[in-house]
């Protein structure tokens, strides 16, 4: 990359990341509010009202649980799409902040993007699980436990991927730090 291209890439990175972040946050906030409202109404109003009622022989609370689950799943999917866009922009913004002026490479942005995506995915999946745990338990008591075990194993794999993604940066910064603190003598 020439100096002019690096400069252009650096400025484009900042411009686009700020633009995406400013549009994505309100959208995520609205969807999260909608999900919380659906969850609250379902748990505190509709399910208690339906207790003891049957719909063509089927217990109504379980049917309502299922409907709320579907509604929450749709909202959560919308949030996840927005969060993914937000993460990409945040990764670009972080590499813009961390990299010295005009020294950011596309690979570095990609590393930060993978790392941030991993952490946000773990948080997003954990929060989504919390939102669904009562409904999963209502369908079958063991279901939420099995899902949690799967999430734990997946989260460990994600954490390993996150750290591997930024390992090149860790190596580079460690080497630079060693040069700075111990001088450039030696091997």
């Amino acid at each position: 990359m020439s100096a002019e291209q690096s400069r252009e890439y650096y400025e484009k990175l900042h411009r686009e990341s700020v633009k995406v972040l400013s549009t994505v946050f309100p959208s995520i906030a609205l969807d999260v509010c909608a999900a919380i409202l659906v969850w609250l109404f379902g748990r505190l109003v509709f399910v208690p009202i339906a207790k003891g009622l049957f719909f063509y022989g089927y217990p109504l609370p379980q049917i309502i649980n299922f409907i709320i689950l579907v509604a929450l799943a749709i909202i959560v999917l919308r949030v996840l799409v927005d969060v993914r866009r937000g993460i990409d922009a945040a990764a670009a913004y972080i590499s813009w902040r961390v990299g010295s002026p005009y020294k950011v490479t596309p690979e570095e942005v990609e590393h930060y993007r993978t790392a941030l995506r991993g952490i946000f995915y773990i948080i997003a999946v954990s929060l989504t699980f919390l939102l669904f745990v009562d409904y999963l338990s209502a369908i079958h008591p063991a279901l939420s436990g099995v899902v949690l075990l799967i999430i734990v194993i997946w989260a460990i794999y994600q954490i390993w991927r996150v750290v591997q993604a930024v390992s090149a940066e860790i190596r580079r910064y460690t080497s630079e730090w060693a040069k700075r603190t111990l001088g450039s003598s030696g091997s």
Binding site: I159, T174, W177, A178, L182, S185, G186
Partner: peptide
């Protein structure tokens, strides 16, 4: 100094990578 720099450059990155993975697993867990 050169020996210390050699050790830092060769051992510190892997140590940091594995230690940060362990700490993140601990935190989330």
């Amino acid at each position: 100094e050169a020996a210390l720099r050699f050790i830092i450059e060769n051992y510190l990155p892997d140590m940091l990578i594995n230690l940060s993975t362990a700490i993140l697993i601990w935190l989330f867990g």
